[in-house]
Each structure stands twice: as C-alpha cells, then as structure tokens.
C-alpha cells in the first residue's frame, strides 16, 4: 500500500522506522497498527502487509484516495555506519520483510555490496525473483520457490564465504532467536528490527517492551531490564535482546 504523507516523509530518517496506523476511526478496532516502512519516495511511503487479523482486514478495504490517520515516523534506524568494512547480509522473514526491502533498495541505490535472503512459507508469499547470481536468495518452507527450507539454510552457506559478514534481520521472533543463537556461536555481529504489540507508539503506554540481555538504562525506558521498542527501538544490536 502506498500513501502520500509529506509531513512524515520530511522527518524520515531511514530503514527501520515505522508508522502507527489508525485503521478504523470507530472503536471496533481500538488500537493503532504499527507497520514498518518498506520504502519512501517523493512524499510517498510504502507499507507491505499480509491480511491476517482484524486490523489488516480493515486496512485492505481502504480505497485509492481514502484518508488514513497515521502517526510517524517512529523509532530508530539500522546503523549503516557499522556496515563499514563489513559485508552485510540482509535477512527478512514473513511479515518482517518491509524494513529489509527498504534497506536493500537504499543499498542497491548506493551500489553497496550485500546479500539479501528472504524467507516465506510458500511461493505466493514472495514478490521478488530468486536470483542467486545477483545475491538475492528466496526460501520457502514448502520448496515451491527458491531454496527449500528456512533462511538459516542460506545464511549458513553464505556466511562462510564472506569476509567480515554482518547480519541485518527482521522477522518473526522465532526466526530472530535462531539467527541470534547462530551468530553468537560464531561471533558475528548483527542488528535486528523487532515487532511488538503497541498501543501508542509514543512511549506513554509502556506496552511494547523487550527484555535486554544486559542491564542498561535507555533514554525512554523506565529501568535497566526492559527497553521500549517504540522509542528506544525497534532496531537493536543482535546480542542485546533476550527472547
């Protein structure tokens, strides 16, 4: 879905950031829906979503020209400075591909060498082409497109062929957890963008926390154990999150 949002576009910092959408003005759907930005161009923002729950079922009924109440841009960004002297491997899974695609396009525009691995359940969930020669690898659980299996299958192969790899990931918590365990074992750095239930996106509800591995007082969080994803995230160093 594409939306004209000049005010948000003006304040946009980059991949990793998200918007919080009020999909229904009535209280039939009480809370906003946080959605990662999948692309931005000339005042336009792109989001990618899969119709799963009540919120996305409502969102899909919106027509060209409708107005949406959007809050944003929210959150921090992938730290691209850390890519220096590293070879980034971008990994997206399920509905978590949005910020990865945006980052991929930004890096492609800057001719920045990187690998892209996108995992999904089946062929119909993909909209890129599986092009290993161009370092774009698609995986499917059922083997209907690209490589059969999860993103881990590709990651385990490519990570050994690259000099100083660095992982950037977004996707379901189960996927991120597996990636985290794998990377810590082989001592490879990475960043990941987290998703969470969220009521406000402003730091006032304190609902969207993630537990940290080490005590650390973050700017917008009220302690040292939990970090507020909307204000201090959604991007974290891969070793800092306790799943």
């Amino acid at each position: 879905m594409e939306m004209l949002a000049p005010n948000i576009y003006e304040e946009l910092q980059g991949p990793g950031q998200f918007i919080n959408i009020l999909v229904d003005e009535s209280w039939n759907i009480p809370l906003r829906r946080p959605m990662s930005i999948a692309g931005a161009n000339r005042d336009q923002l792109t989001i990618i979503y899969k119709v799963l729950g009540r919120g996305t079922k409502r969102l899909v009924t919106k027509l060209r020209g409708d107005f949406l109440n959007i809050l944003g841009p929210i959150g921090n960004i992938f730290n691209q400075d850390k890519f220096n002297n590293h070879h980034p491997i971008l990994i997206g899974g399920g509905i978590g591909i949005a910020p990865i695609l945006w980052l991929h396009n930004v890096m492609k525009g800057g001719s920045f060498q990187h690998e892209l691995i996108i995992g999904a359940k089946s062929k119909s969930d993909h909209f890129l082409k599986h092009q290993p020669s161009r370092k774009i690898y698609l995986t499917t659980d059922d083997g209907t497109l690209g490589i059969k299996g999860t993103v881990m299958r590709v990651l385990q192969q490519v990570v050994n062929q690259l000099y100083e790899p660095m992982i950037v990931a977004c996707g379901p918590a189960e996927m991120l957890k597996v990636i985290q365990t794998f990377l810590i074992d082989i001592n490879i750095p990475g960043q990941m963008a987290l998703e969470s239930y969220m009521a406000c996106g402003l730091g006032i509800c304190q609902g969207c926390v993630v537990e940290l591995t080490h005590s650390h007082q973050e700017k917008h969080s009220f302690g040292e154990k939990f970090s507020l994803i909307c204000r201090d995230g959604p991007v974290y160093d891969i070793s800092r999150v306790r799943f």
Binding site: I29, L31, Y197, A199, Q206, E211
Partner: peptide, 15 residues
C-alpha cells in the same frame, strides 16, 4: 522495571 512482555492486548472496544 514493570512486568515482562507481552504487556498489552487489544480486546473488544478496549484493551
């Protein structure tokens, strides 16, 4: 510190 996540969930006309 507060409670561990998940801390919120949407419910009919509320949370």
């Amino acid at each position: 510190e507060g409670n561990p996540p998940p801390r919120i969930i949407e419910t009919p006309s509320g949370m």
